[in-house]
């Protein structure tokens, strides 16, 4: 899909979904993505996770930025907020602070996350806002029809890099690890069940969980992150990977040539909501404030 092309929907897919039994989480609108787009698996993954965790759809808010990936909220039957390009995390943070009984899932593409929205990620991570951030990383700008993104591979020819991309790609997992995200994982749209498992874990984590989902853009990337390529390059994290060891996680995360799937790192840390509650009770004891003191 792009800003002009009309969406296509596969009828078989619908049958499959209905058969699956978690239709309650699916919206009446059918996804408008291009046939074959990796994003379909995400809807599947999230709805499966919500179903497994028995989270009521009325208590879930899916917040997104702008991009193909960010169309996501329209395709799930929860509360949704389709916001601005790059601003998904601060809006999602506000939603969580506004009502911390809600399960908040933030979604967006790689451009939304690491280009225009890159400034917000460290702060959501370090504050450990209790929400899940799913980044659908296709290494391209899908919605605007195929320009280079911060995770595009070197040498990638796109409409904005007709003579090849020469900007070194970011390492999203290393970034998130160093930002202090308390849950960092990676999944692949081509591995549906693993993806659903990872989303389930991410949502159940108390704190800021970041899941990067490698997802092919079948329309604008015929050479790099294709199913064919990814099927051969992805691997599982080694069995003995210690996901409480930050340096081990960093080490694994640096291997972009063979992206490993699984939970890289997990840490239990006070969440922003817990910090705010603690501050509130401390302030009641020590607070001196009076409005007219200005």
């Amino acid at each position: 899909m792009n800003e002009r092309v009309q969406p296509v929907y596969l009828e078989e897919k619908l049958e499959e979904i209905r058969a699956d039994g978690h239709l309650e989480y699916r919206s009446k609108s059918l996804p408008t993505w291009c046939p074959g787009c990796g994003y379909f698996s995400m809807v599947e993954g999230l709805t499966t996770a919500l179903k497994r965790l028995e989270i009521d759809s009325k208590d879930t808010v899916v917040v997104s930025g702008i991009g193909c990936a960010s169309r996501f909220p329209f395709f799930v039957n929860t509360y949704g907020f389709h916001t601005l390009h790059g601003r998904v995390l601060p809006v999602a943070t506000g939603v969580k602070i506004g009502n911390d009984a809600l399960t908040v899932v933030a979604v967006g593409g790689d451009g939304d996350a690491f280009a225009i929205g890159g400034g917000h990620i460290p702060h959501a991570a370090r504050r450990n806002v209790n929400l899940t951030y799913l980044v659908f990383d296709n290494g391209i700008y899908g919605l605007t029809k195929g320009q280079t993104s911060p995770t595009s591979a070197l040498g990638f020819k796109t409409s904005s890099t007709p003579y090849e991309n020469r900007d070194a790609p970011l390492h999203p997992l290393m970034m998130l690890l160093s930002y202090g995200a308390s849950w960092v994982g990676q999944a692949y749209a081509g591995r549906q069940h693993h993806l659903a498992d990872m989303i389930t874990q991410a949502v159940s984590h108390q704190g800021f969980s970041f899941l990067r989902v490698l997802s092919p853009c079948v329309t604008f990337d015929k050479t790099n992150n294709t199913y064919a390529n990814l099927n051969t390059t992805v691997r599982d994290l080694p069995d003995d990977h210690d996901n409480s060891n930050l340096m081990a996680a960093m080490n694994q995360a640096s291997r972009d040539d063979h992206p490993a799937l699984g939970l890289y790192y997990k840490e239990d840390r006070e969440t922003l909501e817990q910090v705010m509650k603690a501050t509130a009770s401390r302030s009641v004891k020590t607070g001196t404030g009076r409005a007219d003191k200005q």
């Binding site: 808010v61 917040v63 907020f81 916001t83 601005l84 601003r87 995390l89 601060p90 809006v91 999602a92 943070t93 506000g94 939603v95 969580k96 602070i97 506004g98 009502n99 809600l102 400034g119 917000h120 460290p122 702060h123 922003l272």
Partner: peptide
Amino acid sequence: LQTEDEISAIAATIGAAYTGS
């Protein structure tokens, strides 16, 4: 919350307001 910039400040304000806060 002191946010990382004004974009974040208004975004979070609107996010919270969306929930009725």
